[in-house]
Design a protein around this nucleic acid. Structure first.
Lengths: 139, 139
DNA sequence: TGAATAAGGGACATTGATATCCCCTATCGA
DNA sequence: TCGATAGGGGATATCAATGTCCCTTATTCA
């Protein structure tokens, strides 16, 4: 599977939040329901993302979550890393074999793409797609 | 984690086989040892890949595995799909929500990249890298 | 032909990701 | 100030990915 389920849920939640008016607080249960995601599990993910500073949260009535930054400033990699830990994007070379092998090359290309792609890049979909270029810059 | 461990192992094994003289048979244990991969587990993966026709296998003494095609003809996606099943690359839209949402967009971009990238593309690494362009074609 | 070899394939153990639940804490509004 | 609300966080259950083992089958070679 390309990207873990946790990453998928987090990205879907971010896409949902990106559609709201900026600063509007939406509670986890609402997001889960509207986006079709497992509620309790999503709540945990959002808590993690709040600790990392990617979303802002408020407790109590009329509380909820909202994006901490403009969707154009949020790159997908930061979401994935916040959810899966950095190990997911950094390739650990176990033994001092070839320092940069083919796998590392492939992996870092994908990581670079995720880093250069913003939430806004993929949210304006449905019509003729938003942006081009971006990747194919590294290597 | 970007791509499962199984996919990583399979791709590493393919990269190893791609370095051999074409048609040369290498046994699973040898590949695992040289590439630093878990032996028994890799053997299972290679069996799967043999069934899917991506590698050819021979039993008995002087047996082993070899690539079924030229590394330039093997795209990474085919390896990933053979190991993880097609479910990994096809996004199942659970409910008839928005047919093409942002997640689907992102996911299919990565899948397209994997499909357009060959084994040869990533194996010529270590020097100045081999090819460019490729991605950024879809969307 | 038979002994050694290596893949094929099933059974099982282990680990980590995924998912749910419950109670605590902070906050809002009456 | 009190009750309701919503996130914070720990404990636990479930399930799939990962990893190991063992026996079978096919093949080679002496």
């Amino acid at each position: 599977m390309i990207l873990s389920r946790s990453s998928e849920y987090a990205i879907r939640a971010f896409l949902y939040l990106a559609k709201q008016e900026p600063g509007r607080l939406v509670m986890a249960r609402q997001i889960a329901e509207d986006a079709g995601l497992p509620g309790h599990f999503l709540a945990k993910l959002l808590q993690q993302l709040a600790r990392k500073g990617l979303v802002r949260s408020n407790k109590g009535p009329s509380g909820g979550f909202t994006l901490a930054n403009d969707p154009r400033q949020i790159n997908i990699l930061s979401i994935v890393e916040a959810v899966e830990g950095i190990e997911g994007s950094t390739v650990e070379v176990p033994s001092p074999r070839t320092a940069t092998d083919g796998w590392t090359t492939l992996h870092s290309r994908i990581v670079d793409y995720l880093e250069q792609t913003s939430l806004a890049d993929i949210s304006k979909t449905g019509n003729g797609s938003a942006r081009k270029r971006k990747a194919a810059k590294n290597n």
